[in-house]
Design a protein around this nucleic acid. Structure first.
Lengths: 146, 146
DNA sequence: AGAAAACATATCAGATAAGTAGGATATAAG
DNA sequence: CTTATATCCTACTTATCTGATATGTTTTCT
């Protein structure tokens, strides 16, 4: 019941991208360096993000990736759904679904969890993460200027 | 990011047990039949539940399992924690934890999800599930008596 | 022309999940 | 006192997923 590294790394890389954006495409090489993630692995992740319509790419020298929409219009749910599939706390096998007892558990537990989590993921945007990141980063740097 | 069959089957089996309780121990054989779960697998699951202090067992003929406490005093969280470990939506590797960006994501996302889910699991009791089950089961049976 | 980037597959080792198998031990019932 | 019915215990198996790594091909700016 965990979010895998694919989702975590992808999300982190996107925040990094958005935080370091200046209009021009950002290379995965630079993201990989800053975030200490294998370039090869990041390429796979961004392939998925591109196919999901979250980023756009330009090939060739001085190419790279850009967000397809503004950070405030990209929800965390979109991102994680692209990388991990839609969130659902359980994955029932056919036999379980027929069980009448299962219905009770589904209603009181799984459905409620799914709803709460999905609502939160839907609410949180990439922009919020970027803002929070910049803020905490600045706090960290302040100590050098006191 | 799923609850595994161990947790799902265990929870279902416990609700079944509680719903069919009459004071005397209930054998896993009967639970396995009603719930269509492999007896061998259930035995492993109930071994864990016993060690976690959720059920007590009596061996031998006409032996079986009983809830250690009343159903209203057993939270779903206790059960799932015994079978799956404490709920936490992510499991970070050491490198990630040091990342400053990670902190932002942790605060705005993972911590909030963990808190919401754990609160729900803590609130829901075995008794609630049993009640819901009995109710929906009765509704299903009513059609035969109209 | 050459460097730097995305893009595309294939491969691989390790971990985990989901069960199976086979017996050992305990105890109530007949 | 024997037999059936339980729990209890541990090892094994099989399949799938994860987290990469490796090796190139294609594209485009300089």
């Amino acid at each position: 019941m965990k979010i895998s590294t694919k989702g975590r790394y992808g999300l982190r890389a996107l925040v990094d991208m958005a935080a370091n954006a200046e209009g021009k495409p950002i290379s995965l090489t630079s993201v990989a360096k800053r975030q200490n993630i294998s370039l090869n692995y990041l390429e796979q992740v961004f392939g998925t993000l591109r196919k999901a319509g979250i980023v756009i790419s330009t090939k060739g020298s001085s190419g790279g990736y850009l967000l397809k929409y503004e950070a405030k219009d990209i929800s965390v749910r979109q991102i994680l759904e692209a990388l991990e599939g839609a969130f659902s706390i359980v994955d029932l096998n056919p036999m379980e679904m027929q069980d009448p007892l299962q219905q009770a558990i589904q209603t009181l537990l799984w459905d409620e969890i799914d709803e709460k989590v999905n609502t939160l993921l839907e609410t949180r945007t990439l922009e919020q993460l970027v803002d929070e990141y910049k803020q905490t980063k600045d706090q960290g740097n302040q100590m050098f200027y006191i």
